[in-house]
Design a binder for these strands. Sequence first.
DNA 1: TCGTAAGTTTACCAAATGGTAAAAAAGCGA
DNA 2: TCGCTTTTTTACCATTTGGTAAACTTACGA
Lengths: 222, 222
Amino acid sequence: MPQAPAAQAGRKPSRIQLRNRKRILEAALEVFSTHGFRGTTLDQIAAEAGLSKPNILYYFEGKEEIHVTLLNQLLDAWLAPLRAIDPQGEPLEELMGYVGRKLEMSRDLPRESRLFANEILQGAPRMGPHLESVLKPLVDQTAAVIDGWVRQGRLAPVDPRHLLFSIWATTQHYADFEAQVGVLMRDVDVHTGASAHIEALFRRLLTPEVTAGSGETRTLGH
Amino acid sequence: MPQAPAAQAGRKPSRIQLRNRKRILEAALEVFSTHGFRGTTLDQIAAEAGLSKPNILYYFEGKEEIHVTLLNQLLDAWLAPLRAIDPQGEPLEELMGYVGRKLEMSRDLPRESRLFANEILQGAPRMGPHLESVLKPLVDQTAAVIDGWVRQGRLAPVDPRHLLFSIWATTQHYADFEAQVGVLMRDVDVHTGASAHIEALFRRLLTPEVTAGSGETRTLGH
DNA sequence: TCGTAAGTTTACCAAATGGTAAAAAAGCGA
DNA sequence: TCGCTTTTTTACCATTTGGTAAACTTACGA
């Protein structure tokens, strides 16, 4: 077999190989995230990467492999903030920190967010198993932690999974629906306002009620 | 010109025409909402509608016209709950009613939600002007109403636009990310839990703080 | 029931697109 | 510098896909 860097799993990749694979993935992220899988052509990726189409197929077995590679890389980065929640920490601050980190990701990595949204929107055809084997266990685990906090009375009662859904939804909205947000909030610093709003939203939800009827001041702003 | 029901704007449509256009739009909604615009083929729509491809092109000028027709129909239905907010009503209940109606729509019309999400995700290439001319004025108007309520102290201070974003995000999440929600909440009545969670989320956010330090019980559940 | 218009089908086509073969060019260790 | 491997390009190809032409069939008012 004369040549086959695309399929080869073993052997250390050359410098050129490393550089070009990175270029291709960067270009593919750009194109896939705005046009979806079917809406993206290899020619578009090739043009964006500054390589020829056959050259791209020298590094990847096909369009699908590029897409799957991106998706898998993405999920890890995506779940990092969730893994960073410390079961030993202060519940409210752990969760608010998570909210903040997710919002930052939406601002700094909007293409990744849209790539993921595109995939899920279409029924996760290339990610289903991954969600099952990677996302689900992590969410189950996190849900147990949050449930524990709630039972200890250190957090207002919430369904952990619905809580996570609403955190994901509100934070990713700014990346995924940017076209809509842009129409409705032109020339404004969207992120600052979003941050304040979302922090208030979840802090109010999660702050435990004062137990008895004592007129104690709550920890909310003003 | 011998025949051209696709292009004709005038004249009243025949019974057959009405029936088949409806069939096509229903089939197209099904397919577009799961595969996106580029991911959908006319053959798929034809098969789903039980018609031949040329027959479909007898009723619509092309793939694009079908998609645009769906999108325009959709936006009206989508905005109805927003129009239903009564500036004269009780602020908290008006907004909670809106939240509830949006959540119902997400449950009852998930395909429409996904169709819309797909379009916005890709930068609203076929909807941009419509968002500008229809959505924006309505949102501006609603934002003014909410702002008024806040200034009257009948609502906790919120940014109206970010409030709308978070309502849209949380409610539509259940339709748009159904593939993910399904993995994480198998065999559970998702809607009931979602409803309780989202109602708590926004009721807490929007309920105005009691002015002074009186230890009055708030209107929240337990 | 007959004629015309509306509706449907069959048979195509041109362009776009994912992918391949094989030759040419560039790298690079000895 | 030589010779072998890696990388890149040129020239294709088969399939898919949006769309059309024109023949054929059905509906329906006079």
